[in-house]
Design a protein around this nucleic acid. Structure first.
Lengths: 163, 163
DNA sequence: ATCGTTTTGTTGACACGTCAATCATGCAAC
DNA sequence: GTTGCATGATTGACGTGTCAACAAAACGAT
């Protein structure tokens, strides 16, 4: 991987730079919109959105982590802060004394209900509206392929292990 | 923005989910590769790459921040760590007593020279190789349009102000 | 039953980012 | 030249992520 490195030509540089810029900027723009309109951070929104898809707003911590493809410790740290903010509650689990059921409080429900429309609108206005149908399809196939390639390289996800 | 929210249909959900997954996963995979092969974090690499493009490996901190579109404080914190690691040095600036010249040490040069091939190879293998020419073009136009849209919405970059 | 392993989750140390406050310098207006 | 504002950079508080170490319960084999 030394002198036979296939460096990027000018046009590739341009594509790469645009993609890279979007990569860091999109997330932070989304967080900014969320924080501005709803006082929820992006990660908090993710957790609440997962919970809201469960029937009663209750999930095992393990399942949330798996669904979001997060490390357990990451979730644990966040839940501690969210519990302190009154968005969720940890409830000991009846069927497994190790586990916890994470339950959305009514404040959590309020927060996600209030935040969702603005979030969806952000996605619609900044992803779907600006793109042609062909571009949307290309975006899907391109992202899928890149992800698959990274997976094959063993570099995807939480430190390799599925966690 | 309430009951007239245009929610996502199933296919849009699929596109969005794939894009979102890539958004967080790509960066972290890139960081992982870099850390594994070169003991540099992604942000450290960015700074060193910027510096390496200046003739002598010296830039004003302000210019680095501008080029990377970072907040000054972010750069300042990072430079403190990088200086502690011996990758760069802060040198007082002759022409402006407020400013600092950031200068790459020889250890910094070594690090970036050692890391660059693996990084470029990562990009080549996980972005360009898996995509068709049409997909590469669509990726460029799609990312450009999304970014432009976010800019128009006033949500791009460091807290709005150009910093 | 007990031993070893896996699963579930927490904790602490540290890297990293944002925000608001601070401080000194440059600079322009008067 | 001093007043006022913009610029360059740092700091501290705090939210966030990773990693490694840990503890306790569950489970599977014997």
């Amino acid at each position: 991987m030394n002198s036979d490195t296939r460096w990027l030509n000018d046009h590739e540089q341009e594509v790469w730079r645009a993609f890279r810029e979007l990569l860091w900027g999109f997330e932070s723009a989304m967080d900014r919109q969320l924080l501005r309109d709803s006082d929820l951070s992006g990660v908090e929104y993710s957790v609440l959105a997962s919970l809201s898809e469960a029937d009663d707003g209750v999930m095992r911590a393990r399942d949330i982590a798996q669904q979001l493809d997060w490390e357990r410790s990451r979730l644990s740290h966040l839940l501690k802060r969210m519990e302190a903010r009154g968005l969720v509650e940890r409830v000991t689990c009846a069927t497994d004394a190790r586990g916890f059921n994470i339950s959305m409080t009514s404040a959590g429900w309020d927060a996600i209900r209030q935040a969702a429309p603005g979030h969806v609108t952000f996605v619609r206005e900044n992803v779907f509206d600006p793109l042609s149908e062909a571009e949307r399809e290309a975006l899907l196939s391109a992202t899928t392929k890149m992800q698959q390639s990274i997976r094959n390289a063993g570099l995807w996800g939480n430190t390799g292990r599925s966690a």
